[in-house]
Amino acid sequence: MIRLIHPVAGALPVATIGTFWLSTVLSELFASHATVAAVKGTIPWGFLLLIPALATTGGIGISMAKGRRAGLIGTKFKRMPFIAGNDILILIPSALFLASKAQAAEFDVTFYAVQVLELVAGATNITLLALNMRDGLKMRGRLRRTPV
């Protein structure tokens, strides 16, 4: 059962952050400030899915690793502090700040500066999570390992 829950829980953060990122970009480029405010106000609610999914994935991953830290497992473990730190220190505070500014219709220089920071941090997390997924698929034999 754990081997089924781990990949599902691992895919949820990629899908969630990807949805946040894409909806932000599309609303900023093509929609009104009211739509941007709606998107920014909705994103913090997604934390109710994102945070438990990340915790579940990490907890099960640690359990499945059984103390091993070599090879692809070690590589995945090295990425996790960056993913967690990025979420806790940049993405969550930025999302809350932007939701507050958007609800107050304050689309100023500070809003857009934090928006750029959030988009860069989000793209970084999507990349790191996707790399962890790729390595997990390699470990399970679902992707071929490339020769070194």
Rank of each mutant, 00 (worst) to 15 (best):
V114K: 09
G58H: 07
L128F: 11
I62Y: 14
P93I: 09
A121Y: 04
V14H: 06
L50C: 10
L98Q: 11
W21P: 00
T42E: 09
L12A: 11
K138A: 12
T24C: 08
A113I: 11
I62R: 13
S100W: 10
I62S: 13
M1I: 05
V25A: 11
F82Y: 15
F47R: 04
W21V: 00
L96I: 13
L98R: 07
L91Y: 05
T57I: 01
N125F: 02
R69E: 13
L98P: 02
L137V: 00
I83C: 02
L12F: 12
G136C: 07
L128N: 07
L131E: 13
G85V: 06
L143I: 03
L129E: 05
T110C: 02
M80P: 01
G46V: 07
I51E: 08
S32N: 09
L117W: 07
L98G: 06
I88V: 13
A15C: 08
F97Y: 15
F77P: 01
I126P: 03
F82T: 12
F77D: 03
F47V: 01
I17S: 10
I90F: 08
L129K: 02
W21E: 11
A11Y: 05
L98D: 09
L54A: 15
N125L: 00
A65H: 05
I2G: 14
L12E: 10
I51L: 15
Q115L: 14
I5L: 10
I126H: 06
I92K: 06
K138Y: 01
G122M: 07
S63E: 08
E106R: 06
P52R: 09
S94C: 14
I90N: 01
T42K: 10
I88A: 14
V25F: 05
L4M: 00
S27I: 01
S32P: 09
G74V: 03
L22Q: 05
F77S: 05
G74W: 04
G18R: 03
I51Y: 07
H33N: 13
A38M: 03
